[in-house]
Amino acid sequence: MNLFRLFGDMSHLASILILVHKIQTTRSCRGISFKTQALYVTVFVSRYLDLFYDWVSLYNFFMKVFFISSSCYILYLMKMKFRPTNDPSIDTFRIEYLLGPCAILALIFHYKFTVTEVLWSFSIFLESVAILPQLFMLQRTGEAETITTHYLAALGAYRAFYIPNWIYRYWTEDIVDPIAVTSGIVQTALYLDFFYVYFTKVLQGQKFELPA
């Protein structure tokens, strides 16, 4: 473990806590893409199957359990508890365009041709694009509650922190994970537009609004 990865994981943890807090306090999931959240459940479940047969560390174990359970809990909040505040008519991104290509990519690029390793690859590819329905929704409505933008910023910062982590590991441990690195760079790049508006508007105290 190095500081970059620790900051990344903490940022990921924070993003989920911010999202749950937003939904609980405003009693609404307005502005949150259900499709993106459902994709995250898919990502975590397909990636963390190794919980059942590979022990890494206590930290690793609890984080995996947390990510699976919190993402399922968010789906529950959106589909059951605060269902009336979820508006599917603006959540229109076609996720089959993400799932299909990610499945094909996972069949081509993986470290071992076994069910769990191909699912791991799939989860890595899917995670890199899972935010697209959310960003698409933001683009469509042109605005977002400030707390939602903090959620997105923390989520974007998470994979961004992983990039220096990979560089550091390359130098100190001679470890390179090309699948994770390529997808991680793509994932971070998808946030650049958002980060620009976040830094120039939200952090200056203005509302998140996209130019018409």
């Binding site: 560390s57 470290y111 071992k112």
Partner: peptide
């Protein structure tokens, strides 16, 4: 080296 996947990463 069997696999270069970093198993300790989340």
């Amino acid at each position: 080296q069997e696999t270069n996947r970093a198993k300790d990463e989340l």
